[in-house]
Write a protein that binds this DNA or RNA. Structure first.
Lengths: 163, 163
DNA sequence: TACCGTCCCGTTACACTGTAACAGGCGGGG
DNA sequence: CCCCGCCTGTTACAGTGTAACGGGACGGTA
């Protein structure tokens, strides 16, 4: 769990920690943490706001070396399948997985319309409610999407000060 | 106008009731329930499974008279803004609003991967959990998305019977 | 009547999202 | 060595969504 002295420069996420977790996870599961996958993960972790696949492709491309979106999609499939990034269905965009939900609880995303920041949290009560609702309906869940769009606290204050 | 005694033939939703609700709502709010909007709503209500905008456009088109997707999008914007249809973020598709959540509770969608059916329900417990989570984070919500993908009860039974 | 603004809708064009299919490279195992 | 599986690059294409412009219908106003 060694964190670097300076967690990240202007980045919203713990890039080094996420890469370290990915390397460990791939070693354990016998998967390949290829350069493309690593760079894709780094690009996502190096951004405060969710990125679209084409944004990622652009950031991965160099003057002579263009990365096609389809390659990014494959890397993203790998990263999401292994719990390293999340896909926001309401935005068609990707964010790193905070891993604050280690207990198998599904994630709740708070997406700010003003600044674009995404907060990933969990709630035992929401989880309980979902499980009861699913049981009542006899529905076997495969994936759960809980995304709230609105305004984060910081942007509410900023707006109040300005307006 | 006159609907047959049997509510709907092979349709999954109460088409006539939804149209009646739309007419009443538009009268109350001084909005126009134009033919395009009505036909769009009817197409959505006449289908068991969620439809994409281009599917709707295709169903609305006649041999000589083609409806462009952009027109459908505008009708869909109107219908969603007025609570007559819902958009499924995980599918980029639209379903009629059951209006079972009259109490202002946000909807929970159970989407079956096997048969494509969508069940719209609500849960006071989920609502409470969401509200607490939002309050704790100081987040002001504008829209809430709760979509569970999985297998509905009927398809589980069918699968078990087949093998 | 003419004029004006608004709303709705048709049209074109375009950008973004996502997948299918095929080919080449690379490494491991027979 | 060949075979096989995995990853990546490439092309092509289908689906999703919006911006911009123009015209028609309709109501209000002079």
């Amino acid at each position: 769990m060694d964190q670097p002295a300076h967690p990240d420069h202007a980045c919203g996420h713990d890039r080094a920690g996420l890469v370290a977790r990915a390397e460990r996870l791939c070693r354990e599961r016998g998967l390949l943490f290829t350069p493309l996958r690593q760079r894709t993960l780094e690009v996502i972790a190096g951004e405060t706001r969710p990125l679209g696949a084409y944004d990622i492709a652009e950031r991965l491309s160099l003057p002579g070396r263009r990365v096609a979106a389809v390659s990014v999609y494959r890397a993203l499939d790998f990263l999401t399948e292994n719990g390293l990034v999340h896909r926001l269905a309401s935005r068609n965009a990707f964010v790193p997985c905070d891993h604050s939900h280690s207990g198998g609880e599904s994630a709740v995303f708070l997406i700010c319309r003003a600044c674009g920041a995404v907060d990933e949290t969990t709630s035992a009560e929401i989880e309980r409610g979902l499980n009861r609702t699913l049981a009542r309906a006899g529905f076997r869940p495969a994936s759960r999407i809980v995304e709230i769009e609105g305004e984060c606290g910081a942007c509410q204050e900023r707006e109040g000060a300005e307006g």
